[in-house]
Design a protein around this nucleic acid. Structure first.
Length: 492
RNA sequence: CGGGUAGUAGCUUAGUCCGGUUAAAGUGCUGGUCUGGGGGACCAGAGAUCGGAGGUUCGAAUCCUCUCUACCCGACCA
């Protein structure tokens, strides 16, 4: 008997926390609110990084790296941005420790080592980056500037949860500068589309593309594009954002260029980011009561081979078949692990790999050697079948593709079933409390209404969908006129 | 920052109300034998000065005082 995972229906939040730990993805650290990402979890993150990085480069971006610290004077330059993040900033005030004169085994902050200017640990890098861009941009010939950075950031959150909200997290942040408003708007939308494509094709997580309302917008942005996903408990998760920053940062940091007309103009900006939160989206979209379910595109290994044997001779015979299979699968681009550890028994391994979400498992035992078969089990459906050894590679390739598609289809069906159009506030509250998910409703466009709905129901406007149909209607709360529906949901 | 709960073996917990010899269990760990097609069984062993400091007492995991930490509910969270 071993660890048992709490069922989703019993306590969804507990299920999530246990799953993250038991699947060996991450654990809480000695630092409050900060997690340790374990090798298996980090391998998944690396797969995400690799694919995103490829997509960024394909769309013309280059990587660079900017400092972890932001001098306070730079941080406060863009007022709205500074104000938005001020409450959750870690601040460095000293640069030296010394031995405690009252207890030589302890260290204290040396009061003589106070910094003249405090350093903010970046909660996001616009400030330091735009201060740098000032020196890089003089002419329209320097534009567009298309930069991405892979980094860690710190936001001192009151309540944290592994991957979903941690005090320190890993992310990428793109920061671009353009000569025209149109071009910057295009860039912001382009990158939101890149995120959507990545989420759907790689994570197999269906997302809704949209724009944020003014109150949900990034601090310092003129427009925030986003992708919103729906989790199995009916709550929405903001999976990525892309901001059109207007000329706000260019003006705050005085970044001007000479146009081809010889005129001095402020540049137009975007910034966009996705984080380790995507891990949370991945987990909560596909996983079940047995553990993690990984889409083949992101699994650290797509296939695991488990030998079943009684003695060394059997293991040797099985290993020969298994190793041939490993070679053959690798040749066809399938990542595979042969788990020949003698320290754990087959049953234990089966559970282990189910918990870790490996898409396909191949079992080979003495009976298989005799019959020239293998046992093939798929994680998404938890079904098993015996297939002829000769057809394994072919079947595996077909199934991996099928699993990737199946996960996406299943998630999308669930998501679509949980977009409920409502026309009255009673219905709104009822759907929110019984069914959950997205609620598609008319809204009068005011922050007052948005706030009141949030206060009463805890639901927020997740986004105004890009593909919203223009239709006449009346606001579900105020009764005022509205021209399109927006999506409400309780969110992470 | 307000309200609540909890700190005992690597982990999860019992014991605390009502003080009493060597602090208990499951799991995990180490060794062995049998096992091996879904988290194996049995045997043996290692492992905790009971979050920390002080106090009461012949005697404290248990009572008192102070303190630290974590978690939950609020507040907060582009």
């Amino acid at each position: 008997m071993g660890k048992k995972l709490t069922k989703r229906s019993e306590d969804y939040s507990k299920w999530y926390n246990e799953l993250v730990v038991q699947a060996d993805l991450a654990e809480n650290s000695a630092v409050r609110g900060c997690m340790v990402i374990k090798p298996y979890g980090y391998a998944i993150w690396e797969k995400m990084q690799a694919e995103l990085d490829r997509m960024f480069k394909e769309t013309g971006h280059e990587n660079a790296y900017f400092p972890l610290f932001v001098p306070k004077s730079l941080f406060e330059a863009e007022e709205k941005n500074a104000e938005g993040f001020a409450k959750e900033c870690a601040v460095v005030t000293h640069y030296r420790l010394k031995t405690d004169p009252e207890d030589s085994s302890k260290l204290i902050v040396d009061p003589n080592a106070k910094l003249e200017e405090e350093l903010i640990v970046r909660p996001t890098s616009e400030a330091i980056i735009w201060n740098t861009y000032k020196g890089w941009i003089q002419s329209y010939r320097d534009l567009p500037l298309l930069i991405n950075q892979w980094a860690n950031v710190v936001r001192w959150e009151m309540r944290t949860r592994l991957f979903l909200r941690t005090a320190e997290f890993l992310w990428q942040e793109g920061h671009t500068a353009h000569a025209t408003k149109e071009e910057a708007l295009q860039e912001a939308e382009l990158m939101n589309n890149v995120y959507a494509e990545f989420a759907e094709n790689f994570l197999a997580v269906p997302v809704i593309k949209g724009v944020k309302t003014e109150s949900e917008r990034f601090a310092g942005a003129d427009e925030t594009y986003c992708i919103e996903a729906l989790m199995q408990d009916g709550k929405a998760l903001q999976a990525g954002t892309s901001h059109f920053l207007g000329q706000n940062f260019a003006k705050a940091f005085d970044v001007k260029f000479t146009s081809n007309q010889g005129k001095q103009e402020h540049v137009w900006a975007t910034s966009w980011g996705v984080s380790t939160r995507l891990m949370g989206a991945l987990i909560m979209t596909h996983s079940d009561d047995q553990g993690l379910v990984l889409p083949p595109n992101l699994a650290p290994f797509q296939v695991v081979i488990v030998p079943i044997y009684k003695n060394q001779e059997q293991l040797d015979a099985i290993s020969q078949v298994a190793n041939e299979l490993v070679q053959d699968l690798k040749l066809h681009g399938v990542s595979v692990k042969f788990d020949n550890r003698d320290t754990h028994k087959p049953g234990w391994k089966f559970n282990e790999y189910e918990l870790k979400g490996v898409p396909l498992r191949i079992g080979i035992g003495p009976k298989d050697l005799e019959k020239r078969t293998v046992e093939l089990a798929r994680r998404d459906t938890l079904t098993k079948e015996f297939i002829a050894k000769e057809t394994v590679v072919e079947t595996v390739i077909t199934l991996l593709k099928e699993i990737q598609e199946n996960l996406y289809t299943k998630a999308k069906n669930y998501r679509n079933d949980h977009i409920t159009p409502v026309d009255t506030f009673e219905e709104f509250k009822d759907v929110l409390n019984t069914k959950g998910g997205f609620i598609s409703a008319h809204w009068d466009g005011t922050t007052e209404t948005e706030d009141k709905i949030k206060e009463i129901t805890k639901a927020t406007i997740r986004c105004i969908p890009m593909d919203a149909i223009i239709e006449e209607g009346t606001c579900v709360f105020s009764g005022k006129s509205s021209s399109r529906r927006v999506l409400f949901a309780k969110a992470y």
